[in-house]
Write a protein that binds this DNA or RNA. Sequence first.
DNA 1: GATGAATGAGCCTTCATTCAT
DNA 2: AATGAATGAAGGCTCATTCAT
Lengths: 188, 188, 188, 188
Amino acid sequence: MTDKKERILQATEELLAKHGFHGLSMNMVAKEAKVATGTIYRYFTDKDDLLYQLHDHILTIVAQKITQHISDAMPLEQRFRTMWLNIWKMATDSEAPLINRGQFENMPHRGKQYKIALEKTLFAPVHKMFDEGKAQGLFKPLDNEILAALSLEPSAALARKHLTGIFTVSDEARDAAINACWDALITH
Amino acid sequence: MTDKKERILQATEELLAKHGFHGLSMNMVAKEAKVATGTIYRYFTDKDDLLYQLHDHILTIVAQKITQHISDAMPLEQRFRTMWLNIWKMATDSEAPLINRGQFENMPHRGKQYKIALEKTLFAPVHKMFDEGKAQGLFKPLDNEILAALSLEPSAALARKHLTGIFTVSDEARDAAINACWDALITH
Amino acid sequence: MTDKKERILQATEELLAKHGFHGLSMNMVAKEAKVATGTIYRYFTDKDDLLYQLHDHILTIVAQKITQHISDAMPLEQRFRTMWLNIWKMATDSEAPLINRGQFENMPHRGKQYKIALEKTLFAPVHKMFDEGKAQGLFKPLDNEILAALSLEPSAALARKHLTGIFTVSDEARDAAINACWDALITH
Amino acid sequence: MTDKKERILQATEELLAKHGFHGLSMNMVAKEAKVATGTIYRYFTDKDDLLYQLHDHILTIVAQKITQHISDAMPLEQRFRTMWLNIWKMATDSEAPLINRGQFENMPHRGKQYKIALEKTLFAPVHKMFDEGKAQGLFKPLDNEILAALSLEPSAALARKHLTGIFTVSDEARDAAINACWDALITH
DNA sequence: GATGAATGAGCCTTCATTCAT
DNA sequence: AATGAATGAAGGCTCATTCAT
């Protein structure tokens, strides 16, 4: 990726995190990226395009963070706990706040097929974990999307509440939450 | 509530659902509500104020829908299933599309104290259910916010995926998901 | 004059003094006068009409203040000094700041004939003083308008400077200024 | 100064002279200056800023006109008469109509310190004349601001009356007025 | 490729005026 | 006569996008 394009994406992410969607103008992006306004339009057809590409860019990073420190050799439960905590840490460390804050939820999407394909690739280790668990008879025999909603989504949900300051979660409570999610996942 | 004010809120909700935050202009709202632009400002000081009030308005309706057909006399599990399905239905009937697109999460709030207090009142039956479950030793001894994230949030998450067309959930899968959420909730 | 009309004029004057032309809306006037918005239009055809009438209203008061404590029996110099000080006092007491602040300068005028006639009536004692002075050979044989510009205008000009805070005038300086204006007025 | 900026100031001045403060909109200014609305905001942060800068711009021109054809070598009386007539001419030639309509007086200022400093520089020859006259014992020992109000202000006042058509001043009357102002200025 | 001045549609908001009650 | 809710044109200002250099 060109140096300039990288800088533009970087600048956009920072400004988005700092001021939100509302206060994001192309001129500000250009200034922050130390680039002329018109230059942005050499790399992105549109403001929307810039945001789309940023979305993918961030999604990639998020996926990497979520599947960090995971190897297929690890026992299933350990993999699960690690992922759950990876999600949690992203929020509390506020290292990738953009997606967790739902800033991207309001963005117009490109075709859904595209999104599904992208996520399938990025979150392959997650799918692998669910597939293995189901093959072993350990996990409930449900679609991966459902299993994710049951067992990982709560982590994001809690993190969001934590982030907005609605209420705070202690370490013990967090560990108990992980166990509860595990309960949702496995057969009894 | 005045006829006009009601119509303005209604129009705002519809436009928000249709075009998102990005494409919501006061003139559009006025047109949709069949009201002069200036009239909006008799009932709302600001665009922000309009959004705030809409937030509360929707939250109230959502809370009513979620706690519909619930009485304290019903057994805990029945209450839980009913609520879970209430959430689900809101999405699939697309009666209140706003909530399920995540548009709702990112609406501007007034102070968080205000929001916490409001939610406490509106979702009283939910809290009651969790409290009773914990008192009986049936539910895990965790904060209500956490229990909600474990057991009800997945319903909303699935509904959202369902709505965006990412994938479709069969009736059987849905029931299995409810059971899984119940597993997350209860002690084993 | 009706009670209501009087109250409306009163309210307009106060708001004009407080917020200037810029921040004067009919709704504010109505509120300040404790009258319904529509009521204003029973007494004044227009906003402009309201301002015109206010102008005359204030001009009358100003004329009264300027010619206060003046009688035709007083010696000419005493009359002159009294008037000069009356003008000065209006500013420093900030009792009638509206005209001195030039708030009215920008107003569209009705026919100039009207204005000339009105001023002739209101400022009759001033004209009388100049006429007598010229008849006695004490004052320069110039048009009254010119004599006013030479001898009384400086009072208003100084008062304006004083009011805007550009610089402050001591009592001694003020008296010297009066003498200088007298010098401008009389033959040498 | 840029071509565009100059054109915008020019257009503002003309519109102000034509329609007054009341009817001055940024769109009109843009149209008159043959510039896009947004362009104005590249050179002026605000409507207020535009007016401020116009104020200074005009004040500079006014100062130049008033101190035109003046040299320190000229006798005091000649300097005085020249300045007085310079002021007078500005009105009668209607070359700079803005100043004489009082529109100028009410233009928004930045801090008063700023204005005082600016005027000190621009009107240096005027101050010099007064200072020399006082040093020679020819002029009354009063503050320059007061001397200006006594001797030059009447010129502006008469010019204003002349311009609004309230009454007309013959050449002889005008010369007599200059003499009268000189009387106000000198010791007797 | 890169620049950044210029554009102008569109946004939020105000306010003089009307009119059904 | 009086009310005040409703109107909608118009105002100040922003910002995505273009294009001459």
